[in-house]
Amino acid sequence: MRAQSVQTMNYEDVKKRLSNGRDTIYIVNFWATWCKPCVEELPEFEFYSENQFQKPIKVLLVSLDFKNKLNTTLIPFVEKRKLKSEVIWLNESRYEAIIDKVSTEWSGALPATLFSTKNNTISLFHEGTMTKKDIEIFLFTLKKDL
């Protein structure tokens, strides 16, 4: 039995996931296979799924690929890249409706990344590509707040 390469969830389910681990820092990256800067920064997030850290860190790659591309593009992409992070295809009829729920700072441009911890009570948000340094600074900030 092979694990499913891509799970399907709506945004409420994703939020529930963020409430699971008490001390886990969730890195929730909103991306799509059609978004070149998103694909380019995936290795920066994969790093945190490929390695172990003192504090648990969980990367969720939430794809906003179009529904008709789920089987034809997204799943083959994830399998070909052998992504270690959990990949979720966001099952929402209107992606527009989730923007403010993710962060009021989000204009809607991809990529965008939410860092969340402590049962979803502390979060940081960034719109645009993140460098290795950016991610480190965000993680440092959250760990300090723990």
Binding site: C35, P37, L64, Y95, E96, I99, D100, W106, S107, G108, A109, L110, P111, E127, G128, T129
Partner: peptide, 10 residues
């Protein structure tokens, strides 16, 4: 003001 998903300006 409204928001929408889109591509970031490059």
């Amino acid at each position: 003001n409204t928001k929408a998903i889109g591509c970031s300006i490059k």
